[in-house]
Design a protein around this nucleic acid. Structure first.
Lengths: 209, 209
DNA sequence: GGTAAAAGCAAGCGATCAATTACTATTTTG
DNA sequence: CAAAATAGTAATTGATCGCTTGCTTTTACC
């Protein structure tokens, strides 16, 4: 009568655990995701988790790797499909927003990792993701400026920071309204202003105080 | 020989506790701020804290009230001192950035409260702060549009969302670089782009699908 | 100046969590 | 097919946390 649960190889269980964390983070504070909760969602006992991960932070590291791989792959694919750098930037932006809409827990997890006190591997991975993302942004922005699509005096670093902030703002709105569907239309509306800012930016460089 | 610590009235202790939390949050994950840590910073025993607060969330509520009062008062003062609505907006923005630079733990605490699962009083207060802040933003933006300082078709809600995102982005940059002094110069650079976006925004409203 | 209220300490309770242990069940493999 | 390796369970450990309790010290007040 007992269902006699199958034993799965460790690698599959690790993937399951990562997926479980992503799903759990969609509706719970990441700090409150316990090993028991992860195990329960995998239909395992809590102790069994530690057959596949040496420590809880190793699970978080796996999660951050998952996020990094998927997000960077997606934005690279979307940006690569556009020839116009501004269109590439917009595709990156909307792709990122979609990614967050599909996995609402991701920004929460990222923030949670980044503000952890110690220097855990998972935190390093999160920081690396932000840096890689920023590098891609700056590369495209610089290309657009070089092509003359964006004004020559455009402050690339500030533009990249604002790009990331735009996403952060949408996440916060989403956190308050809880309406995930609304995020995409909001994204388009915010993009209009951001785009105009890039194109019209007056360059402090030359007109300083 | 014993220093014979003075007994302070409850009200002062409550203020001390709030201050202790703000200070602690500057260098620690808010979730890790235990009642023991708060008490230690006040040079009290952990149990004594509960003479002044019925529960830990009451402490958080006090902290969120502190933040709400101080932040709103500051931006109201700064915005009120300007006659030009765009200058008022910039003053609000820089004032907010300064506030965060003075109290680096504040955004972390806000985010932490907002993503808490339950419906605690402290969470309600945090949400109310964001709403009040947004209302002020939209009011000034609408006034600027009415005065003709900003284009008539400007998307007020999107502009307000981007304003908040701009701050979130700076916070995230600060979280990664850890350089609090740099935040203000970054803020000015980002503001240039945002301002240009407001002034130049093409209005989707009329050109819609 | 004596007394009650307020504020403090020290200790500990119950709950929770990550990680371990001892043992059993299932796969893999020579 | 037997034996080793792998994956699982159930129970437990040690640490930590929010909060309470019993008792002492300080402050406020008539």
């Amino acid at each position: 009568m007992t269902p006699r649960a199958r034993h799965l190889p460790s690698e599959e269980r690790r993937a399951e655990a990562v997926e479980a964390v992503i799903k759990l983070a969609a509706s719970a504070n990441p700090e409150e995701i316990t090993t028991s909760a992860i195990a329960a969602r995998m239909k395992l006992t809590q102790g069994a988790l530690f057959r596949h991960f040496p420590t809880k932070d190793a699970i978080w590291l796996g999660v951050m790797e998952w996020v990094s791989d998927r997000l960077l792959a997606r934005i690279d694919r979307l940006a690569g499909a556009e020839s116009d750098p501004l269109a590439a930037l917009e595709a990156m932006f909307l792709g990122h927003v979609d990614f967050i809409a599909e996995h609402p827990g991701v920004p929460r997890m990222m923030a949670g990792q980044l503000q952890n006190a110690g220097e855990t591997p998972a935190k390093r991975m999160a920081r690396a993701l932000v840096e890689n993302y920023g590098n891609r942004l700056r590369r495209i922005l610089a290309a657009a400026r070089a092509e003359g699509v964006l004004p020559p005096g455009l402050d690339i670093d500030a533009a990249a920071a604002l790009f990331l902030g735009m996403i952060q703002g949408l996440v916060m709105q989403n956190l308050i309204h809880g309406d995930s569907a609304r995020m995409r239309t909001d994204a388009l509306r915010v993009w209009v202003i951001y785009r105009a800012g890039l194109l019209a930016a007056v360059h402090t460089q030359e007109g300083g105080a």
